[in-house]
Design a protein around this nucleic acid. Structure first.
Lengths: 112, 112
DNA sequence: CATTGATACATAGAAAGACTATGTATAATG
DNA sequence: CATTATACATAGTCTTTCTATGTATCAATG
């Protein structure tokens, strides 16, 4: 990523991926890459600290899985994590509508 | 703003406003507020440093206007500023499509 | 069998940018 | 006369993403 734009969305994207079922760091990167149409390649230096942050805040729970000689740290959403994701999705849509409004790109923007 | 989401879009929003005709700090705040449907209230601590940054980079040119006992520092876009705005608008749309893709909100997302 | 690339996690430190708080000054309003 | 709106500015804080680095296993290649 070269985008400063990602700031503030990385956690949401991670929560979103995990909301479809438990996942682990490396896989989350691949999923975000694929689901963003190849646009977003999360870096380890952003990813792992963010996972630890979300776990500390009880938004995620972690468990280790040994798999064929490799260890993976899986994360699942807590109820609080699921609530936060919904809130963040709403924030994103509000934010995007605001930016599109300023840019004159609104597709039926509602006043806030 | 409470949004970290704004990071990376503030300069674009400012350039966009100024692209419709020269403007000055205080007015830019009002215009962004209004055009974002009341969502984005740029703070002076973000606005003025950003204006100075853009001026240093020759994306904006400034001139003072005395108006009824008040001084206003107007900014106009340079050709480079206009080019950058177009690039940033493209970046934004790419970025938004990527986020919407991850969130499963794509309105006909194209692979990057 | 050694090297490379993919898989997998982790952290330290740098860089960037938006914020709060503060300061100055004039005009309008109550 | 005090407050609010107008108008610009900067110092310092905070957060977040990044680069760089380190460890370790497995698969493929020569």
């Amino acid at each position: 990523m070269d985008h400063k734009l990602l700031t503030g969305t990385v956690e949401m994207l991670m929560l979103e991926v995990i909301s479809h079922g438990p996942s682990y760091g490396y896989e989350i990167v691949q999923t975000v890459l694929s689901r963003s149409g190849g646009r977003f390649e999360l870096k380890e230096g952003s990813l792992y600290p963010a996972l630890h942050r979300l776990e500390r805040q009880k938004l995620l729970e972690a468990y280790w899985v040994e798999f064929d000689g490799r260890r993976r740290k899986y994360y699942r959403l807590t109820a609080a994590g699921r609530d936060l994701l919904q809130a963040r999705r709403g924030d994103w849509q509000t934010f995007a509508a605001g930016v599109n409004g300023v840019l004159g790109l609104e597709r039926g923007m509602q006043p806030a």
